[in-house]
């Protein structure tokens, strides 16, 4: 386990160092906006906010409510594309 976590840390470091993480993040954001995921999420946010009350809503509330939905709502094509890129990065840098 120790080994695995260390491996993970090294991979993360490489992702950040090469700038691949930022690139992937930007790509994901663009794709999600493009496919309407963002609008869907905003609608979800509205419901949450109305439920909690405009004044009392916190970031934690939002994150707890929104993140599972957000993960579920990501379109398959976007997900596949992203996984492909990550895998390519790993095979390239893990050797």
């Amino acid at each position: 386990m120790n080994k695995e976590s260390r491996l993970k840390a090294s991979i993360n470091q490489k992702l950040t160092e090469t700038g691949e993480r930022d690139r992937l993040k930007e790509l994901l954001r663009a794709k999600l906006t493009e496919c309407g995921w963002k609008d869907q999420m905003k609608a979800q946010c509205k419901e949450v906010i109305k439920e909690k009350g405009l004044e009392h809503v916190t970031v934690e509330d939002l994150v707890v409510e929104i993140t599972p939905k957000g993960r579920a709502l990501v379109p398959d094509s976007v997900k596949r594309d992203l996984l492909l890129r990550i895998r390519a990065f790993l095979t390239q840098h893990a050797s």
């Binding site: 491996l7 991979i11 993040k25 999420m41 970031v59 939002l62 957000g70 990501v74 895998r87």
Partner: peptide, 25 residues
Amino acid sequence: LEALVQDIYSELVEDACLGLCFEVH
């Protein structure tokens, strides 16, 4: 490897969600 890939992916997605949450908040 696949587990690692999934981890990174969910991290990215959560990051995007978090960004959205901040924005909305």
